[in-house]
Amino acid sequence: MKLLFSVDWLRSKIASDPDVETEAGRPLVGFDQVKSMESGIVAVIPQRNVIQMRIALGTLVRQLRQRDRLTLQEVAARAEVSEEELRQVETNPSYTARPRLIFQLSKFFGVSLNNLSQMSGATHAVDRRLYNDAVQYAAHSDDVAPLSELQLEILNGFVAVLNTPKALSGHD
C-alpha cells in the first residue's frame, strides 16, 4: 500500500493542527490500583458509602449550577449532556452516572475528573480523604435551599480541595 500524503503535507498540517488529544477507541490506560491500595491511599468501599458519595455528587452539581445561576436545562444544553441524566445525578443517589456525563461535567464546571469520577461511584476504589471530605461537605450542605453566603463558602472550599493537586489521591 502507498501512503497518500507527503512529508511536506505533514509538516504543514502538523504545524497548524491544534495541540489537543487525538485518542480514539477504547481508553488506553492502566487499571492497576493495587499499589495505591497497598499504600492505604485508596480503599474499596461498600455500597452504602457509594450512596453517600453520590449524595455529595448530586449536591455538588446542583450547587455549582446554582452558583453559576443556571437552570438544569441550561447546564444540559451547554455541557452537551442529557437533561434527564443530569436530573438523576442531582436527585437520585442510586443512579450510576455514565462516564461521558462525568467527563462533560468535569470539563464544564472545571472540577477534577478523577475525583468527580470517584464520587459518581463508578469505581471500585476511592480515595479515603476524598470520601471523608465529600461526606462532610454533603452533611454541611442544605440540599434544597438556595445558595447562601455560608453555603457558597463551603462549596468553594470543597471545590478547591477537589482541585488541589496531590491533596487527595497523591496522583493529581
Binding site: 492497576d32 490500583q33 499499589k35
Partner: peptide
C-alpha cells in the same frame, strides 16, 4: 500508564 492509573484509570475503568 500505570503511574497515572489512579488519576485516569478510575474514569476509564468506568
Amino acid at each position: 500508564l500505570d503511574r497515572r492509573a489512579a488519576e485516569f484509570g478510575t474514569w476509564a475503568e468506568a
